[in-house]
Amino acid sequence: MIHPTGPAYLETPLRRHRQMDQDFYAWRDTWSERRLEWSGDTTLGVWIQIAVEWFPLNISGKPFLPVGAPNRAWPDTQTYTQRDYGHRIGIYRMMDALKARGVSVSAFLNARVAQRYPILMREILGEGWEIVAASLDAGSIHHEGLDEKTEAEMIAETLAIFDGFGVTPVAWHSPSWSQSTRTPRLLLEAGMTAMADWVNDEVPYRFDTGAGSIIALPSTMELSDREMLAVRKQPLKDVETSFVAAARRLAKEAKESGHGRLLTINLSPWIMGQPYRIAAFERILDEIFAIEGARSVTVPEIIEATIGL
């Protein structure tokens, strides 16, 4: 049965000349123009984001269930404990691989992880990983159905928990890459410089929150183990090929254009930290950082390298 849409369905009030259908940013041609310039001999920045997320056993599923959330009949201990494995085992395996190669990392960290597992929080800090605040937990979905006060409190509580460890993040990531229309402004008001939620660009850009601007950092779903392994269920070999192909392509573009390029990768310890996958992870790192001009970078350096922000 098909339901009628009605005449209002033809109305397009935001069909505007040379403007998006929202007021956050303008269209631009990122690819052709010079946007990034790295220091030294670097031509390809590689931003490795490690998603350190706690999936509560009673995650609400409002307004949607995040990828990786417990979703079987109560209590879904199978999923819950498998995700928790990432915090106990997987992340340390990845830390070792990254440290051995001298790779800088940004932890996209749920504050509840720090609160619940302070030992892990101190280990992360001890590794020198940058902390990108990723709200409270994986079920803390920022969405239009939240009232502004509730959302502001989620942000404030997150930052207060990190403050307890002496950490003041400059950048934010919203769980499941979900925001309300208010989120960017609330982040700015909470003192954030940048956010990594919009997956529409490969270089930072100015994002108008309606009450001042915040920096939108590149973010990625395509080049994540959550998308390729947990959702699309691709063979590990293909995932490895994709990460390396992306790095080689961007390095080639950097060489040909003379412009800097940035590769953004997002990985989860409960996925990539498994014993049977860790060798592939190590090979990915080895192959990417063997590329001439490739170097790992984190938020301050990415912002510093951006031209005309």
């Binding site: 849409t5 369905y9 307004p63 159905g145 979900s178 925001q179 939620d197 529409n200 779903m221």
Partner: peptide, 29 residues
């Protein structure tokens, strides 16, 4: 923020930053 078609709802929620921005990538890059 498209008008909702009663016959198909492909979004996680609306607005859906991931849905919108992953498509916007095509036009920007």
């Amino acid at each position: 923020q498209p008008p909702i078609n009663p016959n198909r709802y492909p979004f996680r929620t609306l607005p859906d930053v991931l849905y919108y921005s992953s498509r916007d990538y095509g036009n920007r890059i």
